[in-house]
């Protein structure tokens, strides 16, 4: 009897921690999202307002702007990361003398903290003393003194660049895993059949990587939707609100303007978007697994 219950007893500490740190805050924020709660006025949620917070979000310009910024950021960063990772993996898949070295170097950007990446890039793109700003100015004189982070488009470009730089290594390893599972014979058969290198990549390798690429894209989308750290440390959402992502906007609403009811509603909108994508992701993983075992 005791043996049968022991696993449950052992699970209790982990369950309590998950309950306290994840389930309870989630449930509480869901409850709060239907309330008016100005943290400067009250320590507890106030009156029930029904869907008011959600309805307000649908017409609020700043929220819609952050939604648009997030959309642009997600599309560009996911696309560039996946394409670059695939290209790098194709270059790195053959075992050469630098095999181990390149893999170690490759993992370094992913090992860095996103906040640190933001700070580093902010310094590197400083027009006065930034190494990248100066370097680019030296190579292309037209870029000398360009206020990289003060221009809305350039700031968004740099934000995307830092994210791509951070995530490409991890995605490259995913691609390398996928490439390793493709039988060498299919590529060799295509070579004998008369396919060029480009045709082998697009006609033989990429179709076989479809599942891996889809999983990568969905996974990267989920992470991009949560983009926060680099926004804080690199652009602060600016100039203006040009790089204010949804996660950063929610943070501002909750912890700068202290409108916790509205912030909770926004957080749940973001959660809903991510849940839809996550369900899609899990389904895709399951169908991949089914295909693999077929």
């Amino acid at each position: 009897m005791q043996d049968r219950l022991l696993p449950y007893w052992l699970l209790i500490p982990a369950f309590v921690i998950v309950l306290a740190t994840t389930i309870y805050p989630l449930a509480y924020s869901f409850f709060t999202s239907f309330r008016a709660w100005d943290l400067t006025q009250s320590r507890r949620p106030e009156g029930f307002v029904g869907l008011e917070n959600y309805v307000y979000a649908a017409s609020e310009e700043q929220f819609l702007n952050s939604l648009w910024v997030t959309f642009i950021f997600v599309i560009t960063s996911v696309f560039l990361t996946v394409v670059l990772a695939m290209a790098l993996a194709l270059l790195l898949r053959r075992k050469g003398p630098m095999h181990t070295f390149t893999r170690i170097v490759l993992i370094l950007p992913f090992a860095m903290s996103p906040a640190l990446i933001g700070v580093s890039y902010r310094f590197m793109f400083n027009p006065e003393f930034g190494v990248l700003a100066k370097g680019l100015g030296a190579v292309f004189p037209a870029l000398e003194g360009v206020p990289w982070l003060a221009d809305p488009q350039l700031a968004m470009g740099i934000l995307v660049l830092t994210d791509v730089w951070h995530w490409t290594p991890y995605m490259t390893f995913m691609c390398l895993g996928g490439l390793a599972s493709i039988p060498r014979e299919t590529e060799e058969a295509a070579r004998i059949d008369g396919a060029s290198n480009l045709r082998i990549v697009f006609g033989i390798i990429l179709p076989q990587m479809k599942g891996v690429i889809a999983v990568m894209a969905v996974l990267k989308t989920i992470f991009a939707l949560k983009m926060f750290d680099q926004v804080v440390t690199l652009t602060g959402g600016g100039p203006g609100t040009s790089t204010e992502t949804l996660a950063y906007f929610i943070f501002n609403v909750g912890f700068r303007w202290f409108d916790m009811g509205y912030a909770s509603a926004l957080a749940w909108i973001l959660t809903a978007i991510m849940m839809v994508i996550s369900i899609w992701y899990v389904r895709m993983l399951l169908s991949e697994k089914k295909m693999a075992t077929a």
Binding site: P183, E185, T186, E188, A189, R191, I192, G194, P207
Partner: peptide, 17 residues
């Protein structure tokens, strides 16, 4: 290989899945 006028059958078939 494509210019040698050969065709090859592989141990693991090498079919395009």
């Amino acid at each position: 290989p494509k210019d040698r006028d050969i065709a090859m059958v592989f141990q693991n078939y090498g079919l395009y899945p």
